[in-house]
Amino acid sequence: MPESFRLEFPSEELAVRRALERLRHWLLAAGWDGAVPGKVELVLGEVLNNVVEHAYDGKMDGLIVLSCRARGAGLAFDVKDAGREMPGLALPKRRPAKLDCALDDLPEGGFGWFMVHELTEDLAYHRVAGRNALTFSVIPDDQR
């Protein structure tokens, strides 16, 4: 089993689905079990769909490059795209959705980045040479 995983795919929701499926198979084959594959899929789903919807703004011909390798007790990820930069050149803040409101006012979005912050370590964003690079780690709960 190779120690790293790398995949290039277009900025399109079903391509993201296929990428997540291939990553899950690689993780299982590499011996990752318990909560790790589920947490990774949730984090990567949010990150990659954000690239599709915001960085590439729904354009389906953008390139996304996903890499993953084992590091320490966990997994280190690197997601690159050539789409639009993050607003303010910064990561969205760790902000939980406000739920103390009337039913009709409950939020239907804004959960994604909060979950990414909650489930990752060392989350960092860089804009270099017109490209976005997001790096983070996912570590098993008993090693955090």
Binding site: E41, L42, G45, E46, N49, L103, D104, L106, P107, E108, G109, G110, F111, G112, M115
Partner: peptide
């Protein structure tokens, strides 16, 4: 598997039911 978009859709489905 449910992501944040799926979660939002479930919240929307609850709101559609009314009070």
């Amino acid at each position: 598997f449910i992501d944040s978009s799926g979660l939002g859709a479930i919240v929307a489905a609850m709101k559609q039911l009314g009070a």
